[in-house]
């Protein structure tokens, strides 16, 4: 397993390298960073001086070599907007994002399991039809709209939760709920159909023929067999949230996380901060994928990591 993880880390390194290289090339070839970063009123001398200061007057290859060397020491340069190291901004904002995603995905997974089981117990029954219908509703709801709706109901009309910002646990509720709904719906519907399929398998009959309690047949036998599929989808949800949905939800709720910062960095043309954020998210996605593979191996001994 050790060799496997090492190999995956090498692959992950290539992925991160590729992503950072693409960001580097795109920002320098398809836009003028100097024009983006300096105000319109700046003079030609000022522009040249600034370009020289951040190394933009050198050949692209030299720029990339410097860039790569700095990346290895996690030095992405100064954020032009915040006037401090870009990585410092990332590390400051990352915990808020991880807290939000953890709360959202944790809620989704914890609710999906009982809901999926309840639906799978009697396929076609009242609970099942209710769960599937609500699941489809949840899947069809865009988060920017759902977020605004929740603000309207709970913050403006009922006045029981804050509209936006962070600080208290109450601030976490609405953004986490908004972010949780889509994965919750998808995980529930997936778990339901996987369980229905699993419960029809012969080994479940064997377990029942042994006189085991329904809880054991369900929880120990069937549920563990759908766990790999469930974790795969949950991991995919995590990646999709990290690389996209969290930007939307953090913006709607003014949640001071990495997603909101990414949006602000783009708006302000803060090239170095943008690079640091993309690099961090790429690293996180690689780590998540490796962790998932190891988790699969722990759940299912038939999975070979070689």
């Amino acid at each position: 397993m050790g060799g496997y993880v090492l190999r995956r880390l090498w692959h992950g390194f290539l992925v991160v390298f590729g992503v950072t290289a693409i960001v580097f090339v795109v920002t320098r070839l398809f836009g003028d960073p100097v024009a983006l970063m300096l105000p319109l009123s700046a003079s030609a001398e000022q522009r040249a001086a600034f370009a020289a200061e951040i190394g933009l007057d050198r050949p692209l290859v030299v720029q990339f070599a410097w860039f790569a060397r700095d990346v290895l020491t996690l030095d992405f340069g100064m954020s032009l907007w915040q006037r401090r190291p870009a990585m410092e901004v990332v590390f400051e904002r990352l915990p808020a994002t991880l807290l939000l995603i953890g709360a959202a995905l944790g809620t989704a997974m914890l609710l999906a399991i009982p809901l999926g089981i309840a639906a799978a117990l009697r396929p076609g029954g009242l609970v099942d039809r209710l769960v599937v219908t609500l699941g489809l509703v949840g899947l069809s709801m865009p988060q920017f709209w759902l977020g605004l709706l929740l603000i309207l109901v709970f913050a403006v009309n009922l006045r029981i939760l804050p509209t936006s910002g962070s600080g208290t646990p109450a601030h976490l509720v609405l953004p986490a709920l908004t972010l949780a709904l889509t994965p919750l719906a998808r995980l529930t519907i997936m778990l339901r159909s996987a369980l229905i399929e699993e419960l029809a398998k012969p080994y479940v009959k064997t377990a029942r023929a042994k006189g085991l309690s329904a809880g054991r047949v369900f929880g120990v036998h069937a549920l563990r067999n759908v766990l790999v599929g469930f974790l795969t989808l949950a991991g995919w949800e995590l990646i999709v949230i990290l690389a996209g949905y969290t930007v939307v939800v953090e913006t709607v709720f003014a949640w001071p996380g990495l997603g909101l910062t990414a949006l602000q960095a783009i708006q302000r043309g803060d090239l170095f901060l943008m690079q640091a954020i993309v690099f961090t998210i790429a690293i996180l996605i690689v780590v998540i994928n490796i962790a998932l593979d190891v988790a699969f191996k722990l759940v299912d001994p038939r999975i070979s990591l070689e």
């Binding site: 080994y203 009959k205 064997t206 023929a209 042994k210 067999n225």
Partner: peptide, 30 residues
């Protein structure tokens, strides 16, 4: 009675055992 007084052997031994549980544990849980 199931598993205690009446035991059952199924047709397909390839699918009638839980693939994720060691066989000793599957026998042991009865």
């Amino acid at each position: 009675l199931r598993g205690r007084e009446i035991g059952m052997v199924f047709q397909d031994p390839m699918t009638s055992l839980n693939p994720l549980m060691p066989i000793g544990a599957q026998i042991g849980e009865v």
